[in-house]
């Protein structure tokens, strides 16, 4: 940490030119401030606060969240409450007020922790992420953004600028976090569910789990099982088994593989029910 410097570029191009393996982008800094202690190679922090945008916008068909939007902004946004309640729930369960006031959505996603709480909630509303790198601006599905724990397709050479998802009147979502305490807890398992409904028929389902694999995951088999099915005809135990058999979490300092596997299936099932019955 000796000789760590912070640079404040004035435009995107300048910022991009600074990015390499020995630099960190810093947005809210709530991950970076800890990471610099364990990454002695990092000598430069590139502060993007002057150049990226913050805020939530509603267009005719979609909702846009800019990278510097904080968890608190998301929590308090009526737009998010209306179109992505799972995201509101997820951001309101991040850490505690101080961290939520500083930590950004862009940072949470770019950090690519398999335990990041906003990620499953963004995935279940089929969010697209826009980032820029030396090759220019790209917009891709968020589910294709993560390549491993702490790793993204940007490969430390890009900047996330915004997220966008379609407003869907028939989408119901819910989010559940399992942590070791009621605040300031890294998720041992987190889960978000999104159901696009036609009456009581599930047109499309997004079942997403975090902290159970190197990246946050869609549980494909469970999604396929729900596809086209009336909710009343869903065999919740079969759904449970599909989730259970689709994941292979690991033991780590926070929990055990066996616990995560069972609890992931349990919360997937309960979040599914909550999304259908209580979600909007």
């Amino acid at each position: 940490m000796v000789g760590l410097s912070i640079v404040k570029p004035t435009c995107l191009e300048e910022a991009l030119a600074l990015l390499n393996d020995d630099t960190f982008v810093i947005a809210g800094g709530t991950d970076v401030a800890i990471q610099v202690h364990t990454k002695p190679n990092v000598t430069k922090l590139v502060d993007v606060n002057g150049i990226l945008k913050k805020g939530i916008e509603e267009t005719k068909d979609s909702v846009i969240i800019y990278a510097l939007t904080t968890h608190t902004d998301v929590m308090e946004s009526p737009i998010i409450a209306k179109w992505a309640p799972a995201l509101k729930q997820a951001c309101s369960q991040v850490a505690a007020t101080q961290i939520r006031n500083m930590g950004t959505i862009g940072g949470n996603v770019s950090n690519a922790s398999p335990a990041g709480d906003s990620i499953p909630a963004l995935l279940v509303v089929d969010t697209k992420v826009t980032y820029v790198d030396a090759q220019g601006e790209k917009t891709i599905a968020l589910k294709d953004f993560f390549t491993g724990p702490g790793k993204t397709v940007m490969n430390k050479r890009g900047l996330v600028t915004k997220f966008e998802f379609a407003k869907a009147d028939n989408l119901k979502t819910a989010f559940t976090k399992v942590g070791k305490r009621n605040a300031m807890a890294i998720s041992v398992v987190n889960c978000a569910v999104g159901l696009y409904l036609d009456g009581d028929k599930i047109e499309k389902a997004n079942i997403v789990l975090g902290s159970i694999a190197p990246t946050t995951l869609h549980i494909k088999k469970a999604e396929e099982y729900l596809f086209g099915r009336k909710f009343a005809e869903v065999d919740l135990n079969a759904f449970w088994s599909l989730v259970f058999n689709s994941i292979n979490p690991i033991d780590d300092i926070r929990s055990t593989a066996a616990y995560r596997k069972q609890v992931a299936a349990n919360v997937a099932r309960s979040t599914l029910i909550t999304a259908y019955e209580g979600g909007k």
Binding site: A213, P214, L217, H218, I219, K220, K221, N237, W240, S241, F244, N245, S246, I247, N248, A258, Y259, Q262, V263
Partner: peptide
């Protein structure tokens, strides 16, 4: 959870199956 599973296994074998077992080859990522 481990103790609840044990209890379930003792008390109600069907329930126990539901809460712990059923192992197919596991897949990541699908």
């Amino acid at each position: 959870m481990a103790e609840l599973n044990k209890k379930a296994a003792e008390g109600d074998p069907a329930k126990a199956k539901e809460t712990v077992e059923v192992r197919e080859p596991a897949t990541i990522g699908v």
